[in-house]
Nucleic acid binder design. Structure first.
Lengths: 339, 339
DNA sequence: TTGAAAGCGCTAACAA
DNA sequence: TTGTTAGCGCTTTCAA
């Protein structure tokens, strides 16, 4: 038999109201006598009382739950972000519901419905598609939203992202500094702003070094397949690049597969760098030189931003851009070329 | 202004009960007239009605939510399982809450509390620690539990796991078939049953080939660090093994790191195989030969088992053991040795 | 300092 | 075929 507030009230001869006040720590506020207060506390402990959170939630119109929408939990980068959100939210007494959009707009809409009907207090999303209007709408009308990783030009939503521009710029310059001139980049979704910024960084590096007419830009999606196909195409072109810059870990996986298929060795036959950091990159042979993003920090900050908005109900939009770091390994070869 | 059942009732001139029946798909059952039914449906669509699930839950004493406890979301193996659970539950109209025990009993207890206070309808757990008594207790008293991946001798809980024994046996025989005799295995948590079974498979293979006095068994945890340290130790022993069998992906990562540190090449200097499958294993150089587990299928089956129990309220305990498969790559070298 | 009562939004037993 | 009514367990307003 489950113990409820009412039962404790009966047993102590007090009202449900009083019991509720004591049990939710408002004894002080209502100046409830020590004696009464103790009676309640003792009985509650004795029968191992556990409040029915559902009822509390219904009453309070808050669920102490936040929702996270990511494109793929199997992508370690997003798993890291989700994990950081979970832990941060946990510390603040909130539970996290993670849903997976699989990079699909339809699916993303379903994810949103799920979270809204669960009445989450807020949403953290790495959106897919090429705009965030649906999230803006939700943010205006019902539930605060914070974007993470991906964002859009002119969005009114707060977001936390990496400095994609400078990360791409630095790693491209690293290639150039090692003598590379024919540097191909394989991009992800051209609509996504992180992609645009990365592309911007790449272009800027090329331009600074008077290589703007040597740009090689291919690809259109953050997928293994895209990396694979574009690499195949690059290898068959008559001026094969000396270095490939993969715009994401998934793209990189495709690149490496294609190189392996063609029997090319990294870095002797071709140099390779990538965006995104994770442990398996160090266990490839050679370990891959890459632009690391602070996934953990992004998750934490996005969560803090969200709680700020939930708590203060402020509509203030803060945007954070985290630094990236070059993680230098062994996939880049110094070459002497006048090509 | 939020639309509720009551408002629709008012606007259509019907009772809340009728509206509720139509909206929860029970029109047929109560023989509600097409006309009435349509009136409700139209109004509901018009004003974009969304049921307040909290209220439903309070009333029904069901949350349509299941909880998943895994030791680490950042481990791709568990991410795959969690993902499969999520998708399966989704199809059955349930939401999933994933929580992370970080291989820590204390943390696991907190996870359990979270899920129970959320009144999840059921729990799927890859437990840590060396017994499942807390889960058994929960399973008896309040909430059905299904174990996945990890289980324990004599447990009353249903579980879904891999055939760890035959997987380990086969891959050890593969090594032996390639001429290896000094085969070290680096195990994970010795208390965990999957680990015991893997060890059993390894031993059986050694025995079948008259190598039982050549067994080399080290290690004690499913961690990168364990893999690293034990490999270091193995390399410094006077009879260095010709092959290493890592009992998990995490252990493997440590092994490879240590080999790299020591400048040893796989497979020329030493052969390496591992339990667990994931994409990055194909992108290591060389790609790693391994025992693949059907993570996806395990997640799906565990979820189905759980729903069976939730729906029928049966206490019947089913245990499933899925086959494993050898994924043969390039990390094993054939050697001729009379060592 | 405490209690009575209303109500969060929904569903199901019972009645008509 | 539809409606009335009584809660699910909790919190808060108002009154004492």
């Amino acid at each position: 038999m489950k113990t409820t507030l009412g039962i404790i009230a009966q047993r102590t001869g007090l009202s449900k109201a009083t019991v509720s006040r004591v049990l939710s720590g408002k004894a002080e506020k209502y100046r409830i006598s020590k004696e009464t207060s103790n009676k309640v506390l003792i009985e509650a402990r004795r029968c191992n009382y556990n409040p029915e959170s559902i009822a509390q939630l219904l009453r309070n119109n808050r669920t102490n739950t936040i929702g996270v929408i990511i494109p793929a939990i199997s992508n370690p980068y997003f798993a890291d972000i989700a994990n950081a959100v979970m832990e941060t939210a946990n510390k603040m007494g909130h539970t996290t519901i993670i849903v997976n959009s699989s990079e699909d707009i339809e699916q993303q809409n379903k994810c949103i419905s799920t979270l809204l009907s669960r009445k989450v207090d807020g949403i953290i999303a790495a959106p897919c598609g090429n705009n965030a209007s649906i999230f803006e709408q939700i943010n205006e009308s019902t539930t605060p939203v914070v974007l993470v990783d991906r964002y859009f030009d002119g969005t009114t939503l707060p977001y936390v992202t990496s400095n994609n521009y400078s990360g791409a710029l630095e790693i491209t310059e690293l290639l150039i500094g090692n003598g590379h001139k024919r540097i191909a980049c394989i991009q992800g979704d051209p609509e996504s702003l992180p992609n645009k910024r990365r592309l911007g960084g790449y272009k800027q590096a090329m331009k600074k070094n008077n290589l703007e007419d040597r740009e090689i830009i291919v690809g259109n999606s953050f997928s293994i397949q895209n990396g694979y196909l574009e690499t195949k195409l690059l290898l068959s072109s008559n001026e094969r690049p000396t270095a490939i810059f993969a715009f994401s870990f998934t793209i990189l996986l495709g690149v490496l597969k294609a190189l392996q298929d063609s029997g090319l060795k990294v870095p002797d036959d071709i140099s390779v760098v990538s965006f995104d950091d994770n442990i398996s990159l160090d266990n490839m042979t050679p370990a891959i030189t890459r632009v690391g993003q602070l996934a953990n920090e992004m998750g934490i900050l996005a969560t803090k931003l969200l709680f700020e908005r939930i708590e203060t109900n402020s509509k203030q939009t803060k945007n954070l851009e985290l630094k990236t770091e070059i993680i230098s390994r062994f996939s880049v070869k110094r070459i002497n070329s006048e090509l």
